[in-house]
Design a binder for these strands. Structure first.
Lengths: 343, 343
DNA sequence: ATATAAATTTTACGCGCGTAAATTTTTTTT
DNA sequence: AAAAAAAATTTACGCGCGTAAAATTTATAT
């Protein structure tokens, strides 16, 4: 690597003995130049370590290589994991992903979309807040910027949705719990922020009825994204209240379950499927911490890889299609049951 | 709001009846124009909803308003929280923060620094991987871009460091454990990725010796960022092995402790400070989940707010000083002991 | 009212690159 | 070998804005 600092493409073109427009073409798509030319450019690149000015590039390109990734709450490790997965795929495909978190706040989500607009991204992968989202503003955004929704669906918004099949989650957990003991009671927040919660409840009711069972739904109070604490408080109310119709609790999601298990522990209630346990608790999501709860949490896992992979692929083909699909598609991946100690 | 779409600053200047350079000045600093002019601009802004093209701005400005935030591992909710805190402060100060996660990978950390360079940020807040970091490359970066390190220190690198005082953590936890029971054994990874771990061990040894106690350090194997699993496996070895010199374990950090507690639960060992408990476990960090472990984790909390706040303030003053300080400063905030059930 | 300072406008240039059209060179085809 | 096709080069313009210098207007001080 030469010590020479290169100021711009002009200079680099001169030093490598190739015209600037050809260099420009190379950076847009290395395959668009003759192999021999490409070699020469890449040799020069090794010697001089030049990188095009990203602002100048994006000012003139019809379409940038930027991709926005928006998740609702980054302090939830679930979204940390999926963001990482998606980020890497974008980089590998030659895009420049930028990660944003709405931090559970409606206004911040809108602000993010606003600043995303000015980044002129080729496309956006958006996991919306859900119920808290400003639907019409998100709709406006999706009409301007090619957007694929993931994790949380908003009916009719965005060019496509990719997520997990909530029925698959609940179906497997209910099946297992029925087979191995008492029919489960469903435990959830009264006003869930996330639309998946509603689908899971509906799936629970449908599944129970199809098995000839009476569904029981426990709705607990609580707002915001502090699900563990909400689950814990809700569990206290349930545990200290009147008798439950079953010894088996199926939580809407793992974070609630983590709080539920903490409450059980505090009350001295043994949870699990072994001799001497008073309750069973199962849940959905396979949260990164669910393996380390006490007892470890029986749950149902997202197909992370497929959801992330297909979200990204869908966005890429959306970009190639010019930002619009003929019809909005919804892709749901089945979940995978994970047997641990809690149920 | 008018329906007219405005293409550029020229057009907006014409419509608002003010010259373009003045408009430009306004966007650079609204206070740099006469109050009456500012009013007129802001009126026009309400009517026409114009936003300067961010790429054109940054191409020509000597210094952008971009700030890079780099954390080592975003799937750890600790970093999710602190990133959120820092992000908000940057936005409030009129900067445009961009968040990056190294995802625990040395190469990715370097890639991030590379792409940060091309963003020409006014400054960067960097929480390095630690031991895994490529010191010389980080050093190079810090010499080019005004950088404040936080959370993890690398001696002599960056213009300043802001973090928590590891001695304060350990001092408080050891004090408490000594007062309330047996002297603690220190539990940590053999090759900790994070430099704080080394400081905590040193603090433990120093503190114990100053109290006339013999320090005992348990070093467990494990690589990477899956601390919970490493802690769990290490705990099994400890619990199944020969007798411990104490019934009290002090973990280097909460994520190890979470794994430790999971292992204890699996072995049927009751942890806590009440009657009938066989062990006590305490730790450091006040991880967002430490309240929900079983039993809830006695730990020592970072002063999140101060660390985030002072990191950002330090970066701002660094930027105003032209990117260099006379001397490198290290600011350490004391921690706060949090008594819960595990010890 | 006059002098002085401050703010604004005018004018003009440049940032680093994308991109289009016309021309030349190189490669492939027959 | 000549003709056709493909790739590279030359030339030239523009993107949207920052910014500097000089001229003009407006505000403040005496």
């Amino acid at each position: 690597m030469d010590g020479t600092k290169i100021k711009n493409m002009e200079e680099f073109a001169a030093l490598s003995g190739i015209s600037r427009p050809t260099i420009s073409k190379y950076f847009n798509d290395p395959d668009s130049v003759r192999p021999k030319t490409r070699e020469r450019i890449e040799e020069a690149l090794e010697r001089y370590d030049y990188r095009p000015n990203i602002f100048a590039i994006n000012q003139n390109r019809k379409m940038t290589k930027n991709i926005g990734i928006v998740v609702p709450y980054l302090a939830d490790p679930f979204f940390g994991e999926i963001a990482r997965n998606i980020e890497q795929r974008c980089i590998d495909a030659g895009y420049r992903p930028t990660l944003f978190s709405s931090h559970g706040e409606r206004d911040l989500e809108i602000d993010i979309l606003d600043s995303l607009r000015s980044l002129k991204p080729a496309g956006v992968l958006l996991a919306p807040l859900g119920r808290a989202s400003d639907r019409s503003k998100i709709e406006d955004f999706c009409n301007e910027v090619p957007t694929v929704l993931f994790d949380s669906n908003i009916d009719g918004v965005g060019e496509a949705f990719v997520g997990s099949d909530n029925f698959s989650f609940v179906s497997q957990s209910v099946d297992y719990l029925m087979d191995s003991g008492e029919p489960p009671v469903f435990f959830e927040m009264r006003n869930p922020a996330n639309p998946n919660a509603n689908k899971r409840r509906a799936a629970y009711i449908q599944k129970m009825e199809s098995m000839g069972q009476t569904p029981h739904v426990l709705k607990i109070e609580g707002e915001g994204w502090a699900f563990e604490e909400i689950g814990r408080q809700g569990a206290f109310e349930v545990l200290d209240g009147k008798a439950l119709p079953s010894d088996t609790i199926l939580c809407s999601n793992d974070r609630l379950a983590i709080g539920f298990l903490a409450a059980c522990y505090e009350r001295g209630i043994r949870v699990g499927r072994t001799e001497g346990c008073a309750m069973r608790v199962a849940s959905h999501d396979d949260h990164p911490f669910s393996k380390f709860t006490c007892p470890s949490l029986t749950t149902v896992a997202h197909d992370y890889d497929s959801v992330a992979g297909h979200s990204v692929e869908t966005l890429f083909s959306l970009i190639e299609s010019g930002g619009k699909f003929r019809a909005r598609t919804e892709t749901l991946y089945p979940a995978r049951f994970i047997l641990r100690a809690s149920a």
